[in-house]
Design a protein around this nucleic acid. Structure first.
Lengths: 150, 150
DNA sequence: GTGAAGAGTTGTAAAACACAACTATCAGAG
DNA sequence: CTCTGATAGTTGTGTTTTACAACTCTTCAC
């Protein structure tokens, strides 16, 4: 089908990924104004990992500690996140989703998933799976290289 | 290989795409501080389309007109972009890369491509191509739906 | 011509973000 | 035990990105 050189494929991937990124924030904001893309992402990460530290979030998303600190502060103020100081090490605050946060996340995820699903309506299962796999594979590479995550 | 349901695949794709998005800006800033991810993206689009209007950029990336206007203003001030008022319709300013802009874009693209290439070093050609294809296919869907592009 | 619509700019305000300086806690060396 | 260095997190400060709204200028249709 395609006749890309390796370099061309790389260029396309980069360009399209960033194009996607640009739009994601805007459409996320429209779909669910309550929860910005950043907040959404952080909550999703907390759910995925069943709680983690602010530092982990910062490392994973290449954000500054201060940024994460304030974001988490907001989420806590909204009642979506809860801090549990580690009894072993009082420096550490393990962040957890509250039930309210989990519910909000589920709602946002659902409405976004719906909007997204409409766009890939005509994709067959195999393509979707492979697409998901590629993304996982790529992001996993990044994570390892940066030594960011546990 | 995989055993995702369709819904699971959608969730993964969304999550990973956004994770990528979050990181892209940060790593782009580190790789080439001269040119922010937005600016880079806009320049790349100009190159790809061989010039276009500010409105097209706004529509394509779901950005507000004013945002694009200011971004383009910066790029012009830096000497990377040139405006050519359409002789047929004086409302329209067609934006073009200057040679300097093209050079800067090439440099940034190259250094980013290198960083990127390292991460997909062990991917085989077919996977890269398919990945690129999926992205194009997805983004094309979005573009059409929003009726954004020409 | 008049009025609606499109392209673009500017005023203004809110978010997101980074860097640096700070506190508090821990862990190891002497 | 105390000093030192490292880690986790917060807060002060300033920049950048972004959106919304109000505006100008141009075109096109009637």
């Amino acid at each position: 089908m395609t006749a890309y050189s390796r370099a061309e494929a790389l260029t396309v991937i980069q360009r399209e990924m960033t194009a996607f990124a640009r739009r994601a924030r805007a459409s996320a904001a429209r779909t669910h104004p309550e929860l910005s893309l950043v907040s959404f992402t952080l909550l999703a990460h907390l759910e995925d990992r069943q709680g983690c530290r602010a530092t982990d979030l910062a490392a994973h998303y290449l954000l500054d500690k201060s940024t994460v600190s304030r974001q988490v502060g907001n989420l806590e103020r909204l009642g979506y996140v809860e801090r549990r100081t580690d009894p072993e090490d009082h420096r550490i605050q393990v962040l957890h989703l509250t039930p309210k946060g989990a519910e909000m996340l589920a709602q946002a995820a659902e409405s976004r998933r719906r909007a997204f699903a409409a766009r890939v309506e005509d994709w067959d299962e195999a393509d979707l799976e492979r697409f998901a796999e590629y993304l996982l594979r790529y992001n996993d590479t990044v994570t390892r290289e940066d030594g960011t995550d546990a």
